[in-house]
Design a protein around this nucleic acid. Structure first.
Lengths: 247, 247
DNA sequence: CTGACCGCTTAACGCATGTTATCGCACACA
DNA sequence: TGTGTGCGATAACATGCGTTAAGCGGTCAG
């Protein structure tokens, strides 16, 4: 057992990065050092506000959060759902001004990393920098899949795709059981993510249920027929890049 | 006049990056060296095929290209339109396997950069690495805006938003006149980008025309009323990050 | 125990957008 | 000169999803 094993606060991040490439004890230590002590954030409160200029980036340690944008009429569009192990506003390091907000969908535990320390990583640890860069590139890949689902899939396919994606992303950080996982989000939140009304989300969930593809109640999803679900979603997990391929 | 000024093939890229931060002569030279001689690609041909594992990334020097995904029924969703100065598959450097394809929408001139040379840049030039990283982060920001437009805006707002975005991105690389620019794309292509049918794209363009907001014919767009257009789109250019803010 | 509120479901109805089809025009090419 | 082909406009009709509204069960404060 390694003396340098990751402290609890970054185990999920390291677990996810390790799926993609080897990460050295020095790199883990550099990440550790960049992070401040964890904080708890209440459900429904903003972790990062829209249009601000943060001086740190935030690692999600537990809970669910979402990137979102608000329109003039008050409508909200969620552009990504984040899970434990996600660096939720790493992009503010270089973007400087937030083009969107991040909200805690459940109670969350987070750890902040001042930008100065992250810039330091980019100066001293090129390989770790590439791993962090890759993480933001996968965010973009997730965005593209959502675009495809929104633009060209049926509502049912879109919902099924989201379920497949979340199952695999949660599995990568050890947050699933055997074809079952907790998704404590309201249908209104899912509607904001899918670009649909809450009424229609309800209809679609009923439809998946009726087809015997999933069991979904009280924020817990059991996938009864993964093959069928993936077929409805036309799901191809390549974009999540959960295989090793050294950078 | 600098001895080290950019050779023609990377002027648009350097022009765009320079809007965001100072870029040194050494950095420009490193970029130059990473690139191979330009090639011409015919309209409608693939620059990068879906699901392949490229060994280089590609800089678009002139023309229009698009990232796209194809569905089982043959439908196509375009997830980003690229213009001169865009590094169109920089993400393959770390993603390894393409989750989408890139097609030339017009005849294009491109230059390829072997991954080995780009990795070398990440080892030796941390600041330039951050600028390239930022470019991929802006791609993600563009994806998010498209998601918001698809999920929560009307068809008209979505189209208006795309016109605003392309005008500013082309302006950043000197490809616009005074509120006028060339957009030699068919309505079918625009439909694939907007997630709409060609028929509806035609209706929406007619509507913008009828409202006296734009003049659009033969692949040339004149913006007659920028204020109105931006209002219909609820356009906020922050996400394109076309202001200086050192990284 | 009670009322208020929240989340989910279902129903009725309306509308934005899709689908299919036709036509006209410009252009390439035999 | 004729003919195919691609692109755009328009019309008629179909439908997936939005909107509004009502009801129901669970939970929590008092």
């Amino acid at each position: 057992m390694s003396r340098l094993q990751a402290a609890p606060k970054i185990t999920t991040l390291v677990e996810k990065l390790s799926l993609r490439d080897r990460i050295s004890p020095e790199e883990i230590e550099a990440l550790q050092k960049a992070l401040e002590p964890p904080k708890t954030v209440a459900a429904s409160s903003d972790i990062v506000r829209e249009h601000t200029r943060p001086l740190h980036s935030t690692l999600l340690i537990s809970g669910f959060s979402a990137r979102y944008s608000t329109l003039e009429d008050g409508a909200r569009q969620i552009t990504e759902i984040n899970v434990a192990g996600d660096f939720i506003d790493l992009h503010s390091l270089l973007m400087k001004q937030m083009d969107h907000g991040v909200v805690a969908l459940t109670e969350c535990i987070i750890a902040e990393a001042p930008h100065s320390g992250l810039i330091d990583i980019t100066e001293r640890h090129p390989h770790l920098t590439r791993l962090l860069w890759l993480d933001t590139i996968i965010d973009a890949a997730i965005h593209r899949q959502w675009l495809v689902a929104m633009g060209r899939r049926s509502g049912l396919g879109h919902l099924a795709h989201l379920v497949c994606e979340l199952y695999l992303r949660l599995q990568a950080v050890g947050q699933t059981g055997d074809l079952t996982f907790d998704l404590p989000l309201t249908q209104a939140t899912l509607g904001d993510a899918l670009g649909l009304s809450t009424v229609h989300v309800s209809r679609l969930i009923s439809e998946l249920r009726g087809e015997g593809v999933i069991h979904w109640s009280n924020g817990q999803i059991d996938i009864l027929d993964w093959h069928r679900l993936a077929e409805i979603a036309e799901f191809d997990p390549t974009y999540l890049r959960l295989q090793s391929d050294p950078v």
